[in-house]
């Protein structure tokens, strides 16, 4: 069984919600990313989402854009990231999901990409610019490789689209809390609860919510209605603030622990 499914089964048995943490691979450098992954696990994260840096991240806000740019400046690329994940896998069993734009995958070669996901221990894929309609090649190939292709659902998705997304998504369904790009927000739309409920009426798969979640309080609110909460930009901001100070891993761990506690206490 895929590590993601196993994780959600365990969370369900424990009656807990998932704390999913996004970090950009190679920000501030790959060595730190490798150390951050087990640190996030120790802090209570249930799943790590690794952002693959891309030159034109059109679904991302300024925080993740800047982190990606920084990583690209350091020549971070997929072969190096796969190697890093493989090494991290020696010390952690936490589910790892790639968040990547489609072009780097296409250029790498979809088959080779999936093979290397399996070999290095990547469990799932989130591709924000690959809607269901365009996944006809990747979807069956990912299934064969047992890599979970996680689809996003949006506030603007019609009922019929939500149905298809629920049917096709593997691992979990990623509900985008708002119309917009990634990035911490003070307030999230009211309709999140009703939308998550609607999706949950269509599927037994976990529904997790991301985009805009900035604080433990918000994470708790979301955890009340969803099966998991995804936090990205807020974590990147902690990294950004502590770039040139010591104890980066501890500081990120501390912040993530607050988030994880808030989510797990629901």
């Amino acid at each position: 069984m895929n590590r993601i499914d196993k994780k959600f089964r365990k969370l369900k048995a424990d009656r807990k919600k998932a704390c999913i943490v996004y970090i950009t691979a190679g920000y501030p450098d790959l060595h730190k990313t490798k150390r951050l992954i087990p640190a996030l696990e120790r802090a209570g994260a249930d799943i790590v989402e690794l952002g693959i840096p891309f030159s034109d991240p059109l679904a991302d806000g300024p925080t993740i854009q800047a982190a990606s740019q920084e990583a690209l400046k350091n020549n971070v690329n997929l072969p190096k990231i796969f190697k890093m994940v493989k090494m991290a896998r020696r010390v952690t069993d936490i589910p790892i999901v790639f968040m990547t734009y489609y072009n780097p995958v296409l250029k790498y070669g979809q088959k080779q990409f999936l093979r290397d996901c399996v070999k290095s221990g990547v469990d799932g894929l989130i591709i924000p610019d690959l809607p269901m309609e365009e996944s006809r090649d990747l979807k069956p190939a990912a299934r064969k490789s047992k890599i979970a292709l996680i689809f996003l659902a949006a506030p603007t998705s019609t009922r019929e689209r939500l149905k298809n997304i629920s049917r096709d998504s593997r691992g979990f369904i990623y509900y985008v809390s708002l119309t917009g790009v990634t990035g911490a927000r003070q307030k999230l739309p009211m309709e999140v609860a009703s939308k998550v409920k609607l999706i949950k009426s269509m599927t037994r798969k976990p529904v997790c919510v991301g985009f805009g979640v900035s604080s433990p309080q918000q994470a708790e609110q979301i955890a009340n209605v969803a099966d998991g909460v995804i936090i990205g930009s807020a974590v990147i901001k902690v990294i950004e603030r502590n770039l040139n100070k010591g104890g980066l891993t501890d500081k990120v761990g501390k912040f993530v622990k607050q988030l994880a506690d808030a989510i797990h206490n629901v």
Partner: peptide, 12 residues
Amino acid sequence: GGRFVPETLMTA
């Protein structure tokens, strides 16, 4: 061609 965009835009 095709439509390689975030889900949020698909309905639009």
